[in-house]
């Protein structure tokens, strides 16, 4: 008879401490202590009922760490409502807010395409520059195509340059003509010219 390992006596399973409810966590988003607000924001993962209230807090939260936690939680939902609620802040006067929101949107490949048309048509060219920045990091099979469209169609040189900058890491020989056309479209923009001229040798394989 083989040896039978004696099993350790089973301990009764310790019940996990139950965390505060979504309602309590939501109320703590107004707590004066930023650490408490941050914990609440992170604790609201998996509580879709909290999304509207969190979206409403994005524009008013002043602590960057709390804001980042809130955006991390919201981005995890990756829904069109969240994407739309965040995209409005790309036009914010607060640089910290708009860059944090852009970083969050870049992690939302499922829902970001839904807000893309309105961002590409935004009258504020800075919003379109931010959109190019998002597409640079967005893990989506169409991201390259959207950047190509921006380079071909956007009337503002800063947007086109931003889109070229975003495209370059994934650019191939197929994009050479696109860059040449952009350079021709904005002959008086020194930075755009420099960007294209710097990229061409790598793409064409010539010095």
């Amino acid at each position: 008879m083989g040896l039978v390992r004696k099993q350790a006596p089973q301990e009764p399973e310790e019940a996990l401490p139950e965390g505060p409810s979504a309602e309590i966590l939501l109320s703590r988003l107004d707590d004066p202590d930023p650490d408490r607000r941050r914990e609440s924001a992170l604790g609201l993962v998996g509580a879709p009922e909290a999304v509207p209230a969190m979206l409403a807090r994005v524009g008013v939260e002043e602590d960057p760490r709390v804001l980042e936690s809130m955006l991390t939680t919201l981005a995890a939902y990756d829904t069109e409502d969240v994407a739309g609620g965040l995209a409005v802040h790309l036009a914010s006067d607060e640089a910290g807010l708009r860059t944090a929101v852009a970083a969050a949107l870049a992690t939302m490949p499922r829902s970001f395409p839904a807000v893309l048309p309105s961002l590409l048509a935004a009258p504020d060219h800075d919003v379109r520059v931010m959109t190019a920045m998002i597409l640079a990091d967005l893990q989506h099979p169409e991201a390259h195509t959207w950047l190509v469209r921006m380079i071909c169609q956007d009337p503002h040189p800063n947007v086109v340059t931003g889109a070229i900058d975003a495209l370059l890491p994934s650019a191939t020989t197929d994009d050479v003509q696109l860059l040449l056309d952009a350079r021709e479209r904005f002959p008086d923009d020194p930075f755009l010219r420099f960007t294209v001229n710097a990229a061409l040798p790598r793409l064409t394989g010539t010095p």
């Binding site: 900058d165 930075f191 960007t195 710097a198």
Partner: peptide
Amino acid sequence: DAATVRMY
């Protein structure tokens, strides 16, 4: 943050 701007 844009490599091309830094390069420029």
